[in-house]
Design a protein around this nucleic acid. Structure first.
Lengths: 205, 205
DNA sequence: GTCTATAGGGAGATAGAC
DNA sequence: GTCTATCTCCCTATAGAC
């Protein structure tokens, strides 16, 4: 791994752990095992290095999300897989946490990849919800964009609840709560008062 | 307002805007119009002052939440009121945002009021959901604690989405999405495939 | 109670040797 | 490309005068 790569990787780790404001060039250099000269040779400064790190993290997160959301299964199952996918809950979201960083939000350049990542995942989920509506798996009155926002918010907010309590349990509870609200009647496993017309094969209504 | 109060208030504002790591005693003193001596006379240091500020903010937030959650209306309406209550969305949650602060999470003392506040609101919402279940307004298979976690997570995560995009729209979308999933069939305003046995008077099944 | 002075260390960046 | 030296300013805290 090149020095520039090591710098980026160290920055990614520190941004995740301590955020932008809490991350100093010195800490990055120590973790990367590099000197100041290396950093200022490859990057213009802290914001420039952070931008490279954020872009890489954003790309990776987008890939991870697409792996699950583009996987097999019904729309509900794919959203379920996204919500239940393995996460390092107490570490939080490496992209979402940046929105709490005043310097990141204040910089259009640093915020752009954060915004783009979240927007793309949200659009992806929205399309899946719309697909589920066409298949009769989700109620017709639901709005894809809105449900997608609720799904994403539950994940991002789940991290907040988990970190507040110091335990991943609250994250899991929120996810289970949302899934229970989202679950098609056919998968309820209960004698339900709901009576959705579900197409179990998932090939459309 | 006493000097100690001005210090606490300035700290509250700065913690909200910039978090713990991003807030320096110097900035606090400037905003409060006080000198270093005042601060170190009334407080042991930055963590001590921050603790006082966090406690006050937590108490205030708890009061605001109880105002809405303890208000009139059916269980659904009270949760709706909580989700739709006026918020300074782009500023985020003054308590929730602290969970992204490494120094706050690392300190049991600073994290305690954050944890307690979120836990209490969650328990309050959970009780309301259970009440709604008894009244037949919410499906019997829902778990109060889980739905409450989903509600809180949607709010906390909504702030993340909003700040990422620089617009409150995403917060509102997430809230609307969750409310659509939570809404009793009787209030759908659509010819629905759901068929819940709702008790419109809200006096129990 | 509040002020100014002082202090050791870190943040963020530049310069120039190798 | 990478290193060390250096620089200025800020961070957090203490001391002691008023």
């Amino acid at each position: 791994m090149s020095t520039a790569d090591r710098l980026i990787e160290s920055t990614r780790e520190l941004l995740w752990e301590r955020g932008y404001v809490g991350t100093s060039p010195k800490a990055i250099l120590e973790r990367a095992g590099a000197g100041q000269g290396s950093m200022y040779h490859h990057f213009k400064g802290k914001p420039d290095l952070a931008l490279a790190a954020i872009r890489r993290t954003a790309e990776e997160l987008l890939g991870t999300a697409e792996e699950v959301l583009g996987g097999p299964g019904t729309p509900y199952e794919r959203i379920e897989a996204y919500l239940l996918r393995e996460r390092d809950v107490l570490r939080g979201c490496p992209v979402g946490r940046l929105t709490m960083d005043p310097d990141v939000v204040a910089s259009d350049e640093l915020r752009a990849p954060v915004d783009a990542t979240i927007a793309r995942i949200r659009e992806r989920i929205a399309r899946i919800v719309e697909e589920g509506k066409r298949q009769g798996q989700f109620a017709a009155h639901l709005d894809g964009e809105e449900v997608a926002a609720a799904v994403l918010a539950t994940v991002q907010g789940g991290y907040v609840l988990a970190r507040a309590s110091g335990s991943p349990a609250a994250f899991d509870a929120g996810v289970r709560g949302l899934l229970a609200l989202l679950r098609p009647a056919a998968e309820d496993g209960t004698t339900t008062e709901r009576d959705a017309h579900v197409d179990p094969a998932g090939h459309g209504a």
